[in-house]
Amino acid sequence: MYTQALNDPANKAATVAEGEEEQNVRFMARIDADEKIEPNDWMPDSYRKTLIRQISQHANSEIIGMLPEGNWNTRAPTLRRKATLLAKIQDEGGHGLYLYSAAETLGISREEMEHQLITGKARYSSIFNYPTLSWADIGTIGWLVDGAAIMNQIPLCRCSFGPYARAMVRVCKEESFHQRQGYEILLALCNGSDEQKAMAQESINRWWWPSIMMFGPHDTDSTHSDQSMAWKIKRISNDDLRQKFIDATVPQAHFLGLEIPDPDMKFNQETGHWEFGKIDWDEFKQVLAGNGPCNRERLAARTKAFEDGKWVQEAALAHAKKQAARAANKEAA
C-alpha cells in the first residue's frame, strides 16, 4: 500500500556527490545483481532519503489507517466481528511499529517520523481520508484497500533494501488475512437481506475509485518513479499493478453479485484484461492536497493522541531516570 512516495517529485533528485562515483558504481552493480542492501552498507544519500520517505509514509499510513476502522470498533455487529476488527487494527499498529523500526535503521528516529506525520511534513495514504459510513465499509476496506495494498506490497518483498523487504514479507501475510476477512464480511452481507446487500453495494460505490487511485498516477504521468525502478525499490509500474488488481477484483465482485461502479468496465477477450473507464484525477489531487472528506479529522485525531499523551511519555522518562539514579546510588553505597 501507500506507495505514493514513489511518485514524489523529490525522488528524481538522484544526484551523487563527487568522489562517490566509484562507490555508486559498486552499489548499482550490487542492485543489478539482486543483492540486498543492508543498513551499514554504503548507499547513495538519495537512495537513503527515498527509502526513509517511503517507509515512514508506509508506517504513517498504517497508523492513520487505524482511525477509519477504529470508527467501527465499538459498533461491530457481532462479538466475533468485534474481535477480528480489533485484531486487525492491532496488526496495523504492529505494522507501523515494525516499519518505523525498519526506517530507523536508515538513521531517522521514530519521534522524528511521528513529528513529521502530525506536522503534515510526511504523507500517509490518501485512501484514509475517506470516511467509514457503514459496517459494510469495514468489509470493503479489507477487500479493496488491503487488496490494493497487497498488490503494491508483494513486489516490495523483493525490494533492494533488506530490512524493508523482510518487513514486507510479514506485513503481506497479515494483509492477506485482512483481505480475506474483509471479503468474508461482504460475503455475509451479500448472502443476507436486501438491506444488507444494498449496504455492501453502496459501500463499493464509494470505495471503488479511491481504491484504484491508490496505485498512483498513470505511468505516462509518473516519470518520477524511474529512479525507484532502477534502484529496485519499486518493481512494477503503477498501471501494471492497477491492471493486475482490477483483473483480480472484478470477478470477485461478480461472485458477490455486486456491480463495479464503472459503466465502461468491460472484458477484452483478446488481451484477457478488464478495461476500465476514466479515472477522476482531479479528485485524487484534491484529496492529496488536503481537501478530502477527513484529512483534517485524521490528523487532528493523531495530534490529539500525541498532545493528550505527552504527560505519559514525560512520566515514563522521569520514572526511568529516577530508577537509573536509584540503581546508581545503590551501587555507590
Binding site: I63, L67, G70, N73, G93, K304, A305, Q313
Partner: peptide, 11 residues
Amino acid sequence: AGHAPILDEDI
C-alpha cells in the same frame, strides 16, 4: 485503538 498516548499502547 488509534488514540493511545504511544503507538506501543495502541497495540
